[in-house]
Design a protein around this nucleic acid. Structure first.
Lengths: 247, 247
DNA sequence: CTAAACGTTGACGCCGCGTCAATGTCAAGG
DNA sequence: CCTTGACATTGACGCGGCGTCAACGTTTAG
């Protein structure tokens, strides 16, 4: 059976333009081209088209579909990769949704979109250099924008949470608690949650989280807040233990 | 304070190319342009840029950002619209993720990507015309592709579920149950879930669900399966009751 | 005086087609 | 035979948000 381009379009739900495009990029060639230039498709072509459209609905790009249909037999792997990227996209959307909701609440509350004063007592630019070296300029700038977009109340809460975590760590150290005790793990969980907020919902990988602990030990300013080198080491170990168990 | 384009780029995390683009489209003009053509930005421009970048991180398009910053005072509304569309995107991703997972399982199980036989006993093309009239050609074609991508086991389960729902409806009718009884609502919930599967995870709106019930009454073939007009009417009422209570 | 760093404008590329535009072909009816 | 209307072709632009050359001028440090 041989069908015209419109027939195929109707049967498959694609448009004739799409079919010509697929021909142009070599994804789906007509089974025959008439002397008048008309494209004709047979059943095999129709089956292939259906497969293409099915994969397209899954969100794959046309080159990826071409590879997959070429049948390099690592087909499932290609889909796995695609799946990972779909999940990343979803996470990104989740974070955007949360941020937009927060922004709407702020604007409804009459807040400015972004504080113009660059400094407000809490020097969030303190670790600018480290952040830029580790995560890049844009990462710092992005975090800075986020911070300046918060309401005064939100900023206050963020700082409170930090102080609270810090105080509890110090108390645990004074009490001689183990970094693997439930008590300390609970503090570290709050520490972790605090960090996630500051990262606008992006979750550090276990390695990243442990790496931040190492930073605490290496940097005096961090250590000073946590009672010297021992304190910083304790916190790092607690973070490593938490990462091992819960991340 | 006046800064060069690179200074602004570094401070904001944007690239100079981006700044020139924003200039081109009128989203952010330099505060001054030197006789040599160089762009210079003052603090006001920097603040505006930060706001632009903040909104961009929320996923807004540049024209939407321009409108929003023009301050038509329905700012929050624009964000609400954006939020709705973000949620739609997220739903779409959720469905794609589920479909890709299922497809991977099928391929790992050695199944073909898509059955070539167009008919297999269960005539899923039965309601083709109605579907195309109500939801468009592409909607039918898409459902058809989905159906042919299922494994035999999955197809069998889908039919089983339908039969089971049907049998339970008939029993409930025979027992004289009320369409608002818990018993019937439970059946309708299964009916609804069955439908959602067939729609590949897309959830019908309450109106759509009730509309399908009306179709049951209007179409003899549906009615025949549910014991005549009365049966179809019962099912429609049950669907309406369910929609009212649970959707 | 030179090299490096920084600046400019202009144009193409990406992705997957939608949407003209300009023109040719075919089947059915008068 | 001619017309009409449906259907076909190729070719090109457009979208979004810049990245990335290219080709060239300017400023700054040594």
């Amino acid at each position: 059976m041989e069908r015209s381009i419109q027939d195929i379009a109707r049967l498959s739900g694609a448009t004739s333009r799409t079919l010509r495009h697929y021909g142009d990029i070599g994804l789906l060639e007509p089974s025959r081209i008439g002397v008048n230039g008309y494209r004709y498709y047979d059943d095999d072509a129709l089956v292939r088209l259906q497969r293409i459209l099915l994969l397209r609905e899954l969100g794959l790009g046309l080159p990826a579909i071409a590879d997959l249909l070429a049948g390099d037999r690592e087909q499932a792997d290609a889909l796995e990769r695609h799946l990972r990227w779909l999940r990343l996209e979803k996470d990104r959307l989740d974070r955007q949704i949360g941020s937009v909701e927060a922004t709407i609440r702020r604007m409804r509350g009459g807040e400015e979109l972004m504080a113009e004063e660059m400094f407000d007592g809490f020097d969030h630019t303190q670790y600018r250099q480290e952040v830029e070296e580790r995560w890049g300029t844009e990462a710092y700038a992005s975090g800075d924008r986020w911070w300046r977009s918060l309401t005064a109340a939100e900023k206050a809460k963020f700082r409170e949470d930090q102080k609270s975590v810090q105080a509890d760590y110090l108390a645990a150290i004074a009490a001689g608690a183990s970094v693997e005790s439930e008590e300390v793990l609970a503090i570290t969980r709050r520490h972790y949650d605090w960090l996630v907020v500051g990262w606008q919902g992006r979750r550090p990988t276990p390695e990243q989280f442990v790496g931040m602990g190492d930073l605490y030990v290496a940097d005096e300013r961090f250590g000073a807040k946590y009672g010297g080198l021992e304190g910083a080491t304790f916190v790092r170990n607690a973070m490593a233990a938490f990462a091992e168990r819960n991340l």
